[in-house]
Design a protein around this nucleic acid. Structure first.
Length: 223
DNA sequence: AAAAGTGTCAACCGCCGGTGC
DNA sequence: AGCACCGGCGGTTGACACTTT
């Protein structure tokens, strides 16, 4: 047997038992969350660290809400999905008590059917995930307080930083640098963008704007 | 009653980025 | 710079429950 095979066969797969849950909960109670790969060594649990982490996050964590989704939750998920695409962790972060896995499953099995949406490949692709991370990292590398602003607005422009823009080079035109108003595009595609003033959007979709206000400085849509 | 079909959702998989050495 | 390790993400799978025939 190869090392790889030996390694993979040392862990159990499939549904968790009550006893396994108890061991994992005891571990978290004593050691806290994190260092998931230590769990099999310390507790003797025949589960890999990844599996332990997932089990805790999706099921055992005390913050996880069980049961049916309410109409309010459905409404919020639908609107956030319209805005963000399949970014389940971001969406779940705005639905208290629900995990990304729950939201994803609920969307795929209930909401997409309810809305008559055919399952399709992720429109907001992995590359856009990277774009967000890169752009935020790029902005934060500077020590300047304005370092999070686009280049054209750097250096004294009064820009509302809560702005969504495409990342294709047109984005710098999307912000009124002199006024305090930000422009917000709800789209993957600059050419067919729907542009709104920040306040205009806020009056229509308060939950979405609450999400933007609290969670992100810039969201770069567009590919 | 039982086989076949369908729905649900917990769990797995592969990939990626961050971090430390 | 390159590597290993870890945590996190979204897509997918498969076991189980439920419904239909």
């Amino acid at each position: 047997m190869s090392d790889m095979e030996e390694k993979s066969s040392e862990y159990k797969k499939g549904l968790w038992t009550v006893e396994e849950d108890r061991i994992l909960m005891d571990y978290v109670r004593v050691h806290g969350k994190g260092k998931w790969n230590r769990i099999p060594k310390i507790t003797g649990l025949k589960r890999c660290g990844k599996s332990c982490r997932l089990r805790w996050i999706n099921y055992l964590s005390p913050g996880v809400k069980r049961g049916d989704f309410s109409e309010e939750e459905n409404d919020l998920i639908i609107r956030l999905h319209n805005l963000l695409g399949n970014r389940w962790s971001l969406i779940a972060g705005r639905v208290p008590g629900r995990t990304d896995n729950q939201v994803k499953n609920h969307w795929n099995t209930h909401l997409s059917k309810k809305l008559g949406i055919k399952k399709e490949k992720n429109k907001v692709s992995t590359s856009s995930r990277i774009t967000i991370k890169k752009s935020r990292q790029d902005f934060s590398t500077s020590s300047s307080p304005n370092s999070k602003l686009p280049h054209s607005c750097d250096g004294g422009g009064h820009v509302n930083p809560k702005v969504i823009m495409t990342s294709d080079g047109h984005s710098q035109n999307a912000v009124d640098c002199e006024g305090a108003q930000g422009l917000v595009a709800i789209t993957d595609d600059y050419e067919s963008s729907s542009w709104f003033f920040h306040d205009e959007l806020k009056s229509h979709t308060p939950n979405v704007m609450e999400f933007l206000d609290e969670s992100l400085d810039f969201v770069w849509l567009g590919l």
